[in-house]
Amino acid sequence: MVINNIAENTKKLGAKQTRGETRMNIIACYKIVPDEKDIQVRSDRSISIDKAEWVIGQYDLNAVEAAMQIYEAVGGKVTALSVGDRQLENSKLKKGVLSRGPQELFLVIDEALSGADTNLTARALAAAARKIGFDLIICGEGSQDLYSQQVGIQLGQILNVPTLNAVSRIVAENGKLIVERSLEDEVEVLEVSLPAVISVTTDINQPRIASMKDILAAGKKPVTQWSLADVGLNDANRRTEILYTLAPEQAERKRIILEGESEEVLDKFYELLRKAI
C-alpha cells in the first residue's frame, strides 16, 4: 500500500476507466441477517429471532454494488460469497443476491458456522476465497445485525493482503485501485495494489434495484455449496463467544406536558430532560 500525493490522486479519481485494461476477479461478501422488523424483545430483554424472516444485510448490498460497478468499468467477474449455517440454503436469498448482478455464488454452509464469531467467519471466508481465487474482496462496513466491523479487517489480515476499511470511493486503474477514505476531518486518497480486501461505507453507492429480468436470470446462475471441510478449514474453534445480547431497557412514555414559555417552564423542561438522559 502506497500513499501518494493527494491532489494527484484526486485527479485520478475523476479519470475515465477503460474497460478491458485490467479485468478483475472480485468477490463480494455478504451476510444474511434476521429482518429487523421481525425481531422481538422478550420480557427479560433477550432477543428473539424465532419468527424473523432472513434477509441480505443492507450494508453488504453496498459491497455487491461496489463490486458490480468496478466490474462494469474494467470487466472481469463478480462472485458473491457467504458463510454460515443452513439458513443460507434459502433459495430466495440466493436468487436475491444474484439478482443484484454477481455472475456466480459460493456458499460455505456448516453447522459449525452457526452464530460464528468474527474470527471464525473471517477464516471461513479466507479459506473459500483462496479456493475461488480473487484480485479483490469487498465487504460491507459491518454486518446489519451485530455490526462489529471486524470481518473485513480480519479477512485481509488472514489473507495477508492490503486491507482497508471506511472506503467511500473506488476507481480501478491499471491493475490498481485508487480509493478514498472519509475520515473524521480529512479525506484520505490511497493507491492500493492488488490483491486486496476493502470494506466499503454505506454512502459509497446506492445499490441497484433488481428488475424482473434480473430476478429471472438469477435463478439460472451457478451456485456452489461447500462445507468447512471442502474449503480445508478443520479448526472451527471460536476465539470469542457472545454470552448474551440484551435490548436496552424500555421506559414507559412519561407523557408530561409543559405549557408556557417562561424561564421557569424552560428550567423545568431542562431539568426533566437532564434526568431522562
Binding site: 433459495s91 430466495k92 436468487k95 436475491g96 439478482s99 446506492q206 434495484i209 433488481a210 428488475s211 424482473m212
Partner: peptide, 18 residues
C-alpha cells in the same frame, strides 16, 4: 413465487428509497 416476492421487494425498495 420467490420471483414474485423478490420483485415486490425490489418495488418496495425503489419506492420507499426514492
Amino acid at each position: 413465487t420467490e420471483e414474485q416476492e423478490l420483485l415486490l421487494e425490489s418495488l418496495r425498495e425503489l419506492i420507499t428509497r426514492e
